[in-house]
């Protein structure tokens, strides 16, 4: 029960901190690389997820990616 406010605070902090973070659109050369995508190698991740889903009690957590390549 005590965890929920903590999560909310974390989210709020990370959001408010966002405005001062980041790069200019032309500084995304490294982030645009395929291997820098948050869900790089989706097939590996899906296979792993399936194994761990069937062998452990917890699952999920990772989402579809945002960001990564800034190429619009």
């Amino acid at each position: 029960m005590k965890r929920k406010p903590v999560i909310v605070i974390c989210l709020a902090l990370s959001l408010s901190a966002c405005a001062s973070l980041g790069v200019k659109p032309w500084e995304r050369d490294l982030l645009a690389k395929d291997e820098m995508a948050l869900s790089a190698d989706p097939v590996d991740l899906a296979l792993d997820d399936h194994i761990y889903f069937s062998k452990e009690a917890a699952s999920g957590g990772r989402a579809f990616a945002g960001g990564g390549c800034g190429c619009n």
Partner: peptide, 15 residues
């Protein structure tokens, strides 16, 4: 150095 891009305040690539 992105000097010209800075002057034009690019919002994305390409622009």
């Amino acid at each position: 150095q992105g000097n010209i891009a800075e002057q034009y305040q690019l919002l994305g690539m390409p622009s």
